[in-house]
């Protein structure tokens, strides 16, 4: 089990991480979501021991990653670009991984490359999608227990994105490994994540499953008998998505009796609960605008 304990980090006098606490079990896919600058990349880099925290610890099993470098054999960090290995050919990169990680399975790696028709050439000469596939294939061929992926599908086309997601699911199914993935592609995370960790201004705002998140917040489409009441539009606890005539579509951070009573008091013709997507939850919980995704 991976345990993040009271992790805090200040960079340039700004608290980037503050008392971050959560655990990750074997076989889980965790979606790390938060607005730009929320501290997701810093958290991932700290979890693999690249950055040292001011306070707190990251433990894989009973040991701290900051005390036992050998633990990193089972913790693979995949950054958002393949720049680190850009001067390597694919075969050289595979040889490097093979010599570092005893569990590296070259045939698994080869199989993935063959499936996606990627030839042996310098990594910098590959397309963005191919680079992502190569770095992820290298990482997954290591057969590690924990994977920390930073924006693995950023900038990929829909086919490549889908392939990356399939690759992740296949790994968890085959080996019961854990994946912590940070991404702004919320509709994709929604398909694969067991739990969501929401980060806001360096703090964990919530750790929950998607179902729990859906139960916490609510998205309603209400048709009123008359105009949409101004009092509804002025409420601070809801985010109005759309108002068309007598129809209002809005989300509330929390499902409360007070809100239900309020809506009922305005004599609605129809109340329909719309299923919430992860993107909706993100917007209502973290106050994000669509443009920052």
């Amino acid at each position: 089990m991976l345990t993040v304990q009271q992790l805090s980090k200040t960079i340039d006098r700004q608290q980037v991480l503050e008392d971050i606490d959560f655990t990750v079990n074997s076989g889980e896919i965790i979606a790390l979501v938060g607005r730009n600058g929320a501290g997701k990349t810093t958290l991932l880099r700290t979890m693999v021991g690249i950055i040292r925290p001011d306070k707190g610890d990251v433990r894989y099993g009973p040991s701290s990653i900051f005390e036992k470098a050998e633990l990193k054999r089972d913790v693979i960090f995949v950054p958002d670009s393949a720049d680190a290995l850009k001067h390597y050919t694919i075969n050289e990169a595979a040889a490097l991984y093979e010599s570092i990680y005893p569990g590296f399975n070259r045939s698994v790696f080869r199989e993935t490359l063959t499936r996606y028709n990627i030839d042996n050439k310098k990594i910098r000469q590959l397309s963005k999608g191919q680079k992502a596939m190569v770095t992820l294939s290298l990482a997954f061929a290591v057969q590690a227990k924990y994977y920390l992926l930073d924006e693995p599908t950023d900038g990929l086309d829909v086919v490549a994105k889908s392939d990356v997601l399939k690759l992740m699911i296949a790994q968890v199914e085959a080996r019961n490994c854990s994946i912590i993935v940070s991404s702004h592609q919320l509709h994709e995370l929604e398909r694969i994540a067991d739990r969501i960790i929401m980060i806001e201004k360096g703090r964990v705002k919530a750790v929950m499953s998607l179902d729990e998140a859906r139960e916490t917040s609510v998205k309603l489409q209400v048709v009123f008998n008359e105009q949409v009441p101004v009092e509804l539009l002025e409420r601070k606890d809801i985010e109005v998505i759309n108002v068309t005539g007598r129809v209002a579509l809005f989300m509330a951070k929390e499902r409360t009796k007070e809100l239900d009573t309020f809506v009922d008091a305005h004599d609605p013709m129809l109340i329909e609960e719309i299923p919430m997507s992860l993107e909706d939850i993100f917007r209502v919980q973290l106050g994000g605008e669509a443009s920052v995704f």
Partner: peptide
């Protein structure tokens, strides 16, 4: 200057090594 530094630090070696 490149992400090689992050890569190195994420390897199972100590900074001393």
């Amino acid at each position: 200057n490149s992400q090689m530094s992050d890569f190195s630090m994420s390897l199972p070696f100590t900074r001393t090594q």
